[in-house]
Design a protein around this nucleic acid. Structure first.
Lengths: 138, 138
DNA sequence: CTTGACCATGAAGCCACTTCAGGCTGTTCG
DNA sequence: CGAACAGCCTGAAGTGGCTTCATGGTCAAG
């Protein structure tokens, strides 16, 4: 199958597929006489694997590790476990961060009383205050 | 004050300060005879303002808008409100996404029973399954 | 034989910085 | 006076994960 069909059947853009090839995440495909890339079901699978990992917020580097672990049919899968543990910790931390951010944003948003007066806008006043700016100084 | 002192007193790296100048987020500072940048308290304030906005997950483009709104002492602050509303919606959406991701990761992590056998690792099996890969095909 | 869909390449752009290479400035110490 | 060293300068390139662009080749249908 050509690159267009691979793209359609996986929902991955053609340019992205070529990018993955450059990054050695997809095996180099055969070519036709006209220099078109020719893909096999193996490529479809690998591409889906990559996209599923990406949907789990893995970096391409991490995906590379997982592909390696998957293809090395012998050996320990400790790497895989460690990777997931690390990823979960990251996500937890990020969620905490975003929750705090939400609070801050909501608080800030509540400060604008007269929605037409920049001079007295509580939001801008608070942004300045938080930045440690004394109006008299400006 | 020189760039090093500005960096120390705001916790912003020297390179980042120069980057903000290039991006027109900081006013161009005066120079000494030796071509060193010379900053004023005004710069400290503006830099703190930028970092506070960045800590609220604003893009530099959004920070630019806020600075504009702040400096235009007349006029409406509807832009500011709209910006914050949009930002809050973004953060909400991202938190939802990450929560789902957490569930998926936790589920996946629970699948590895024997932590030393790649062949039977439930995680790798699930990653493959989710990518729609039938083992017989490989 | 031309149209149009499909494909190819390499380079540049995106964001928000960071890093690097190579060189100037300015102070201090011997 | 000279060397060592901290501090500063510039421009270019690198980061991740793509996307966009410019330019041109391939192939089947009409």
């Amino acid at each position: 199958m050509q690159i267009g069909e691979l793209a359609r059947s996986t929902g991955v853009k053609i340019e992205t597929i070529r990018y993955y090839e450059r990054e050695h995440l997809l095996p180099v495909p055969q070519r036709t006489d006209g220099n078109y890339r020719l893909y096999t079901p193996r490529h479809v699978e690998q591409l889906r694997f990559i996209r599923y990992c990406r949907s789990l917020d893995m970096s391409l580097e991490e995906v590379r590790l997982l592909i390696e672990a998957r293809d090395a049919l012998a050996g320990s899968c400790r790497t895989v476990n460690a990777l997931l543990d690390e990823k979960m910790a990251e996500v937890d931390a990020r969620v905490d961060e975003l929750r705090q951010l939400q609070d801050q944003l909501r608080q800030l948003r509540g400060l604008c009383q007269q929605p037409d007066e920049v001079k007295t806008c509580g939001i801008l006043m608070e942004l300045n205050r938080s930045a440690g700016i004394d109006k008299a100084q400006i």
